[in-house]
Nucleic acid binder design. Structure first.
Lengths: 340, 340
DNA sequence: CCAACAATTTAAATCGGTTTACTGATTTTT
DNA sequence: AAAAATCAGTAAACCGATTTAAATTGTTGG
């Protein structure tokens, strides 16, 4: 019992492939296929459970019903959660997701994009690393739907879903200041990605307003936790007089907490902590850690909605939109610190 | 500058498509294509940066260079981490990953498998929900490489990578008993999946050896945290005399910790805690929580190695293998509890 | 009765590769 | 010198759909 093809159906029912194809694609009316023929074909298709070969379809039409999802690292809970939500919506709309982790690696990302192009994926959802402006531009020029999220690229105008990074860190830093903290460090990955720059700027802005001195530690991006904890530990040991520390991403945040636990610094009595992104780790930490919660559901929802709209051709010529979402500052460290 | 096809090359160089195809596929030698021709073609291909259309290739050959990865939930850190490691190896070997979350939903999984079949994916990596024995059998019968992991299915003989679940919980429960705990509860998802049954059995076995009474709470599988925390809270309130609780999965574990925090039960002074799976949440909890660590890297590594071997046709007829990996019991709760 | 037109239906081209089966020329074997 | 084998390469079929352009058949008006 081999797979049955459109030709088999045509032969069996003594009609042409063309007729069957038209019926399959709902163009029977338009193509004035007779009532009786349509019914016969549909009945037969139903009976044998025929499903067209998507590869052949893709080859002919250029559409693959596949969406490429490119994130920094699928094992990062932020991206994993978003991937999950996007996946659900995509499948419900007849699209599959083919994903990959870019590691913020420009060369790798370039390769991946060109592979996806070859495979004729229908659309792209990308948290772009720096330096791939050209490839993205090229995709856009080729009329490919591209939705960026989490960060944007200079001079690239395409659909975008982001959060208000600058305000988020500004606001959280101000919160620390209002709590009486003065020596507030900011520890983050060194990166020129838009969201990272904006976050850093928010921190600086808040400090400047109070004329406080910044304590900045930038760590090279890496997947290996040891290469993150080590510099954090070194930094904290060198700056023992800090009274608060702000972690710029969830990954840095968890690594940071590990260091604090390790070297026996108590939160928040010894050192107040705030982190970007809000996860179980921060909620369950005792006492719980204040964190900036990104609206994961809203981000995923907007991303996939925008992309699906583009794919439905209806909104082909609508100019690209930028959606900026708000974050929540979940204030948790209960014990307010009073510096003498 | 449109995409260039094999026909274009043939025309340009005054050779046949066949010749070009043979050269592309490294069969020039075998097909006795002349040195000079091979070089001319290769040079041209290099120059124009020609890459064959994978869709056309797939259509003809039936191979897609795509691996389907079906997990319970990609946003679960256990699966996300494994996905990440698998992804790396797959891409390095010229395969792409198309993934989906099954939600342990039989119907959904069935649909997904049939979609993947239509798309002619080359191999499957599956953490199977119950009730899809038939589909898996059918895949195997069709000579599709299938690697199951995390759990297995009754009467299905295919490659498998698992951990020693029974021993893991047995061992951890014994550890609790040795610490002097007597009323040890086990909270888990209600499930007939092999790994869940084995874990439960390990717990029971250890208790029986000491003739202790089991306290079991099974919660319906769900993605929604509220539907997990609520029953846990209810259970704990009903059984105030417990002195230890064992969480059967990382998800139940994190939800469990939330409940404990919520209702103000101190770990481990009020209640000792052990969880299956070891994550930041448990490491960073203060005091840190004892947990069973699955060897994520080893699991991913074995899974993809086995699959890649199968795909390399060489090991076509080698009978299927089951790999059972060991876990680590990371003992953390320092304060030993002395019951009077 | 024939042209014009509409209503159905279809042959054939196409997408871009791979593979089978074959050709024509040269060389070796018998 | 005829037959067989080797060499170098190619035409055409094929994978399974979509789509264009055209062919049939039936109807109507002049």
């Amino acid at each position: 019992m081999k797979k049955i093809s459109i030709a088999d159906i045509a032969r069996e029912l003594h009609v042409s492939k063309t007729t069957v194809s038209f019926i399959l694609n709902g163009r029977a009316e338009e193509k004035r296929i007779g009532r009786e023929v349509v019914e016969r074909v549909q009945k037969f298709i139903e009976e044998v459970g025929y499903r067209p070969n998507p590869l052949a379809q893709s080859l002919r039409t250029g559409k693959s019903n596949i969406i490429a999802l490119m994130v920094e690292d699928i094992s990062n809970p932020f991206f994993a959660s978003i991937a999950r939500l996007i996946e659900d919506r995509a499948y419900k709309n007849g699209y599959k997701i083919i994903y990959c982790s870019t590691d913020n690696d420009t060369v790798k990302t370039r390769d991946l994009i060109s592979m996806f192009r070859e495979r004729h994926v229908d659309g792209y959802i990308i948290a772009p690393p720096e330096g791939i402006e050209e490839e993205i531009s090229s995709l856009i020029k080729a009329k490919m739907p591209v939705v960026l999220f989490d960060r944007h690229l200079q001079n690239i105008s395409t659909d975008l879903v982001e959060i208000d990074n600058l305000f988020s860190t500004y606001n959280a830093t101000r919160h620390l200041i209002q709590q009486g903290f003065k020596k507030i460090a900011y520890i983050t990955f060194s990166s020129n990605q838009s969201q990272m720059l904006a976050r850093l700027e928010g921190y600086h802005k808040a400090l400047e307003e109070s004329a406080y001195k910044p304590f900045l530690k930038e760590i090279p991006f890496n997947q290996n936790d040891d290469l993150i904890t080590a510099p954090i530990a070194a930094f904290l040991k060198k700056n023992k007089n800090l009274d608060a520390v702000f972690f710029g991403t969830n990954h840095v945040g968890t690594c940071g907490l590990m260091v604090l636990t390790d070297i026996g610094i108590k939160v928040p009595s010894d050192l107040a902590v705030v982190s970007f992104d809000d996860y179980n780790v921060f909620k369950l930490h005792s006492p719980p850690v204040t964190a900036i919660a990104q609206p994961i559901e809203a981000i995923a929802d907007n991303v996939i909605t925008v992309l699906l709209n583009r794919l439905n051709t209806s909104s082909q010529h609508i100019s690209s939109q930028s959606i900026i979402l708000k974050t929540d500052l979940n204030i948790r460290a209960s014990s307010k610190m009073i510096k003498s």
